[in-house]
Nucleic acid binder design. Structure first.
Lengths: 260, 260
DNA sequence: TCGCTTTGTTAGAGTCGCCTAACAAGGAGG
DNA sequence: CCTCCTTGTTAGGCGACTCTAACAAAGCGA
């Protein structure tokens, strides 16, 4: 195996997501229990046994598994390499979701499974670089991940990170003055004025609704007009008009942008 | 529209990825060119016109588009909301790929399209928080993104970030001594010794191959044995045995782990 | 008015992945 | 030996998505 075509990343092999999942499952089963039977593969993947057989036949055709009918399944050298590749992607994504984004294991696993087959090599590579950075740079780990996690933005309930994150770590009053355009509520713009979204001070459904509407950091919003009592306000976003309730609009903090 | 069931994130609507793509495409077409015709939708999505008609019929059934045969297509209120939701996800992902991971536009777009339909709301929310952090915290932006990008790890050719990233920014000799286990080459472990992967000092195909094999940051590796001349070396990773060529093994830097 | 071009629709077929249900192959026990 | 149970295979279907190719509806020019 160590003598095969050097530099091949196995990219010429076009596996469907489902087949990659089967490989990954077999790899994990063999590692954990020593063997992979049709039954175990089916229950691990949450499908019926009847779906597994034809998939194994296809993998055998591709030379990735050894598949003697009615016997345990095992990976060929090429199959193991492919399985390792997929597993590596899964691992990277799971770690990113859990350690950087602080998502619960279940969500991290689910999302990793959902996207591990479709990301490009470049993207995976950059994600790995991010880890190398976070894990190997003493300043890195302590300055970014920890700071991000300590930032009020990550504590669901606390909406007060306007001037930068104060940290237990020293150097809080560094040589760098904030010197930024102050944040104002979207709500307090005048009709015709514009601003870029800087933060969304809401949680749960309201936050989700705002995000779903496309109110994302750095989005350019123009306030069109407000109703007499200021309750529904109309904004323009990406060329489209949108109406917001006051409670929603209050949660949106923007940096005013000078008119054209 | 602003009076409808409050707090609904539209989650009960089960759209297939393809249908979401159609919505997104229509939304963009209407925004950019003022109208959406079957032909334009087809070419924007890279499919034939014959595939578009039935999809539009299904979207019309769901009440998401107005679809008078042989006329321009337009989104209903609900359809526009849904389109905005999908577009928002696309935007967040594209920005993350471009601005944090520094991927070229084409790759960022491709990957965003590929995964925008499958990530959970929680994950998207955390990604947005990451942006809020990076954009709103003066220390944040300057300390993390810039430092990450300036880090030699991000410059393909420079493999020399062993002791932390030196930066043009001040505070390089901070109050925090590295005080870490020094990095050693995987190669210089003795048989039976173990280490955790800290960095991979390779680029291009070699790097990709190592990543594909599951040699990722933080992975636990045990060196099993080396060939007489030290050229192929055998390691154990995740319970599996693996053989590496010397040139590959030299690129892997680990932090030795005390034996059990 | 006739025909041509552009545009959109419909029908038929193919792929992929899953399901259910019927069937086959062994092992264990009476 | 026969039966029951577990396990795996095969066949037939279904839903989602796509394609091609034939067909229909307009607009446009001569």
């Amino acid at each position: 195996m160590s003598g095969g075509t050097p530099g091949s990343t196995g990219a010429e092999l076009a596996l469907t997501p489902a087949l990659e999942d089967y490989l990954e499952t077999i790899f994990a089963l063999v590692r954990e229990t020593g063997m992979a039977r049709v039954r175990d593969i089916a229950s691990a993947r949450g499908v019926k046994a009847g779906s597994v057989s034809p998939a194994l036949a296809r993998l055998a055709d591709l030379g990735l598994v050894r598949y003697a009918r009615r016997e345990y399944v095992s990976l060929t050298g090429q199959g193991e390499a492919e399985a390792r590749r997929v597993t590596a992607r899964h691992t990277v994504l799971t770690h990113f979701f859990q350690e950087v984004l602080q998502l619960p294991v279940a969500v991290a696993e689910r999302d990793a499974c959902a996207i591990e087959h479709s990301l490009s090599d470049e993207t995976m590579d950059r994600l790995v670089r991010l880890f190398e950075f976070l894990r190997s740079c003493p300043q890195g780990r302590d300055s970014f991940v920890d700071r991000f996690h300590a930032c009020p933005l990550m504590q669901e309930d606390v909406p007060a990170c306007t001037q930068g994150c104060r940290l237990p770590t020293g150097q809080s009053a560094g040589p760098r003055p904030p010197a930024e355009v102050p944040l104002t509520a979207l709500f307090s713009l005048r009709p015709g004025e514009r601003g870029r979204v800087a933060r969304i001070d809401a949680k749960g459904p309201v936050r989700q609704r705002l995000l779903d509407m496309g109110i994302l950091p750095d989005a350019l919003i123009e306030l069109e007009r407000t109703a007499p009592l200021g309750d529904p306000i109309w904004i323009r976003l990406q060329g489209y008009q949108l109406s917001l309730r006051r409670t929603e609009a209050e949660a949106v903090l923007v940096r005013p942008v000078p008119p054209v």
